[in-house]
Structure formats: structure tokens, C-alpha cells
């Protein structure tokens, strides 16, 4: 592939991932949120293919494939099923309104650029910009975890953080050793499964997966 084209494709994927995490902040329904996550993961998988093709790091093809299977299909499907069983939990409540959330997300992107600035000089891989973008996605995911009140939405926030992390790994070091990446994927999958189990248990115990009911333990 032509270097210019692959460079453009990488930029496209990265920007799309960032925009999708912003989109995820604006959704009010769990199904939309899962869609946003799935599409974001799709861009992540595509990014892996593009980088693998343009730099010759062939193990990234495998990573892209696994990302597609696990994050684009597996996890969203499993979580959608769980959400269906929890009839209570279709709406996502947030402690902050959508305009506020977007404003904070925008601030987080600026913060990410400031934080990663000293690192830009030391990293000379194809996608320097990716580092700031990946930090932005991580921070936005974290912000989602903090402000959303439904168990499922908190879990998606965590998964978005992990997407941002994989974006960072790919852009600064073309992926970690394969064993490690496989292990991390397995972990992500387990997190999704266990979160689902606990969401079901919480729903059964409290008749809601609104995590604001989880406020009893304190001094």
C-alpha cells in the first residue's frame, strides 16, 4: 500500500475512534452505547490491519482478527443479551447532562495533548498523533465510568478505556509481544463476562442495575 494512503487511513481510524468515544458520551440508551463501542472496535481492528500491512508487522493481523471477533462481535453480543435480560436497564442515567459531558470530554482531549507533549519527541513511529488521541480515548472512557450510573454503562466505559490503550500500544510500539496481547484479550473477555454476572446479581438483589444504589458501605 502507498505510504500516503496508509498514513491517511491510520489518521482516519484514529480520529474515528476518538469521535466514537465522544458519541458514546452522548448516548442515552444501552443499545446505542454498545453500537458505538462495537464500531469503535471495528476501527481499531481496521487500524491493526492497516499498520500490519504498511509496516510488515504481521502479528498485528492476528491482533486485528481477534479484536474483530472479541470486541466487534463477541462482547457487544453478550452484553446486549445481558441488557435484554435486565429489562430495568435500558436507559442510561448519568450524573452529568450531555452538554456538560461533551464539554468535559473536549477538555480531556486538550489535557491529553498537554500530557503527551513531552513524549511526542521521543516516539518516532508512524503515528505520533495517535498517542494523544489514545490518551484522550482512555480519559474519556474513565470519565464515562465515573459519571454513568448503570452497571452496563460503567463496564462499557472500561472497555472504551481498553480500546484507547490498544490504540496507544499499536501506535507507539506496533503491539506488544503476542503472548501478552493474547493474555490481555482473554482478560478483557473475562472482565466482560464477570461484569455481566455481577450486573445480573445486582439486578436480582436490588431490582435495578442503577449503581447509585450501591452507596451503603461507608464509615
Amino acid at each position: 500500500m502507498d505510504a500516503a494512503i496508509s498514513g491517511n487511513l491510520i489518521d482516519l481510524c484514529v480520529v474515528a475512534m476518538l469521535l466514537l468515544s465522544m458519541l458514546a458520551m452522548t448516548t442515552t440508551r444501552i443499545a446505542q452505547l454498545l453500537n458505538a463501542f462495537a464500531v469503535q472496535s471495528l476501527f481499531l481492528a481496521f487500524l491493526a490491519f492497516v499498520i500490519a500491512d504498511s509496516t510488515g508487522h504481521t502479528e498485528l493481523f492476528i491482533m486485528g482478527g481477534i479484536t474483530f471477533a472479541v470486541k466487534v462481535i463477541g462482547i457487544p453480543w453478550a452484553m446486549r443479551n445481558t441488557a435484554m435480560r435486565l429489562h430495568a436497564g435500558r436507559e442510561i442515567d448519568s450524573t452529568m447532562g450531555i452538554p456538560g459531558s461533551l464539554l468535559v470530554s473536549a477538555t480531556l482531549i486538550i489535557v491529553a495533548y498537554l500530557v503527551t507533549e513531552p513524549l511526542m519527541a521521543t516516539v518516532d513511529t508512524i503515528a505520533r498523533n495517535c498517542l494523544a488521541m489514545s490518551m484522550s480515548v482512555i480519559l474519556i472512557g474513565l470519565f464515562m465510568m465515573v459519571t454513568r450510573r448503570k452497571a452496563m454503562a460503567e463496564a462499557v466505559g472500561l472497555l472504551i478505556m481498553e480500546n484507547g490503550l490498544f490504540l496507544g500500544v499499536m501506535s507507539i510500539s506496533y503491539g506488544m509481544p503476542l503472548v501478552v496481547e493474547m493474555g490481555i484479550f482473554f482478560d478483557v473477555l473475562m472482565v466482560a463476562v464477570i461484569v455481566g454476572i455481577f450486573a445480573l446479581r445486582i439486578n436480582k438483589a436490588f431490582d435495578s442495575i442503577d449503581t447509585s444504589v450501591l452507596r451503603r458501605l461507608k464509615e
Binding site: 482512555i138 465510568m145 472500561l158 445486582i202 458501605l217
Partner: peptide
């Protein structure tokens, strides 16, 4: 599986997963 135990487990899972990420 008491409510309070579930709450503790959920917090544990979420806070530590974020931390470890």
C-alpha cells in the same frame, strides 16, 4: 451475595480494573 457484599465486589471489580488498566 448480600446486598452489601455485592456492592463491595462491584466496587472492587471496577476500581481495580480501572487502576490496573
Amino acid at each position: 451475595r448480600r446486598n452489601s457484599a455485592l456492592e463491595a465486589a462491584w466496587k472492587y471489580l471496577m476500581i481495580c480494573s480501572v487502576g490496573i488498566t
